[in-house]
Design a protein around this nucleic acid. Sequence first.
DNA 1: TTGCATGTTCCGGA
DNA 2: GTCCGGAACATGCA
Length: 259
Amino acid sequence: MPELPDVEGFRRVLAEHAVDARVRGVDVTDTGVLRGTTPAALDRALAGQRFTEPRRHGKWLLAGTGGPTVVMHFGMTGSLLWCAGDEPRHPHDRVIFRLDRGELRFRDSRKLQGIRLAENDDAVDRLLADTGPDALSIGRGEFDALLTGARRRIKALLTDQSALAGLGNLLADELLWRVGVHPARPAGELSEDERARLYDEMRRVLRAAVRAGRVPPREGWLTGVRDERDAPCPRCGGPLERTRTAGRSTVWCPRCQPR
DNA sequence: TTGCATGTTCCGGA
DNA sequence: GTCCGGAACATGCA
């Protein structure tokens, strides 16, 4: 279910367990998650290398070695786990990085995204060339400039990874609900005050979610009720509205978020 | 059995 | 060119 906070959690898994560990080898049990590389190329590039401090940009996780970098994207169902012992492999463990202290496992059922191999930092830059600024790093001024003059719907803009990297469907709904902005309003139509509050809420929600390592279904948040049929708005108690556009579900409160 | 799922990409139409 | 919705990708779950 990865949005920025989940990927940040996976980054911590790498940072805690894999940094400085030597890679013994890479096992690929399903090539369906490899993008532009092969099991042999992955193993050849990584065996003997040591992971350096991992980085995250938006929903991308970058596991560098000083040489090649493993570039991971988790789609909707991916995750990264550390297994120190000999826990049996899960059927969805598609790629296993065998390190000298244990295993790092890329687990993913739907295989909507996967693992790429960047030979050097230039190749990493090329992979991320179309990705916008990270939602946790973007400054207030840059965020403001992004929205000002944009004619697109605010939700479409917030979830467009080439505009702003890291927010997904749940986070976008959560933020707009908190700020009281209807998801279909043109981004450029938001007031100075709405833009300011949206930025502040984005930072607040992201910080809390990063601490949890996921987008938490928390009481008092929209996330806490969005999966319940007929659940009332946690703020005003009124009925929530639900629609689908382009395959994405949208939940909002027509009272708190007028058109 | 059918519909739905927190992601991205590609395509056609307005 | 811009924006939007739908389909596709592959799989599990209610």
